[in-house]
Design a protein around this nucleic acid. Structure first.
Lengths: 141, 141
DNA sequence: GTTTAATAGTTGCTATGGCAACTAAATATA
DNA sequence: TATATTTAGTTGCCATAGCAACTATTAAAC
């Protein structure tokens, strides 16, 4: 083989992502929140009443994923779907009391997690990583 | 919100991974190969007759995923499962002629893809990215 | 030698991710 | 106004990803 699997940076990035996600999942488990569900919650804690369309754009995810994650969050009792009266195609997503109550527990945890994974990494290195990953995203477009 | 979603490096890495994977998927589609299935094929092109256990370790994936990906590759006619005679618990994976024939088409494509995503990125920057991502993987363990 | 452990692989479940096709509703166009 | 198009959301399908629980087989312990 000309290039070993480990040398493909794409594979390296993918495996890193899996390891990080796995750790986040573990830490969020006690709140009954999955990692990507948590991203929706973070947007809603900032401001709820967003439409699914907005969530889809802000998280750069397919709207089908948003639908399914919201169904799960709704079933868990963290959010409510309210159909928009002036445009009955859209639904606005609101936090329940239970959903609101999670914020003060989860945010410190995600902030702490960010500190943990970046520990031993300088600001300069982090900036380079961001710049290189951005460049790669441009390259594949 | 104290930290914006985009500032979490974990989210940035995840979204980059998704974009890269999506592009790889698109390019491999004409060979009827999914991205992760292709990783198995790459190992088998290097040397076939590996057990599922070996594939699982080399790709750092859960053995259940290997089982399912191999079932798909078998159904497509790219690989064969042969039960090991001296240890009937293991199966050894061999390429079919059709599976072997893919190599000379796919390898140039993956190498080209590697060049594309790393274009405009210096060797030094790439080394830093690898080092930082390695550090992050250590940090979450 | 029989019981117990470990090992290899499979299946079920949940969570993600995206494409295609669909419904319902609103808007644009004729 | 009636038709066509666009938009918001849902469902179906397939591909990943990993945990738990299971079967079959082998190895270890007694």
């Amino acid at each position: 083989m000309n290039i070993s699997l480990k040398e493909y940076i794409s594979i390296f990035i993918h495996q890193t992502d899996l390891k990080i996600t796995s750790c986040v999942k573990e830490r969020l488990a006690r709140f009954n929140l999955a990692p990507e569900q948590n991203l929706i919650m973070m947007l809603l804690w900032e401001r709820d009443g967003r439409t699914q369309q907005e969530l889809s754009e802000q998280l750069e995810k397919d709207k089908t994923n948003i639908t399914r994650m919201l169904s799960s969050l709704e079933q868990k009792g963290f959010i409510k779907r309210i159909i928009e009266t002036c445009d009955r195609r859209s639904t606005r997503i609101f936090l329940t009391e239970e959903g609101k109550a999670l914020e003060c527990h989860v945010i410190p945890l995600t902030d702490e997690f960010h500190r943990i994974i970046t520990s031993g990494v300088t600001e300069e290195e982090l900036a380079i990583v961001r710049r290189v990953l951005s460049k790669m995203r441009e390259n594949v477009n």
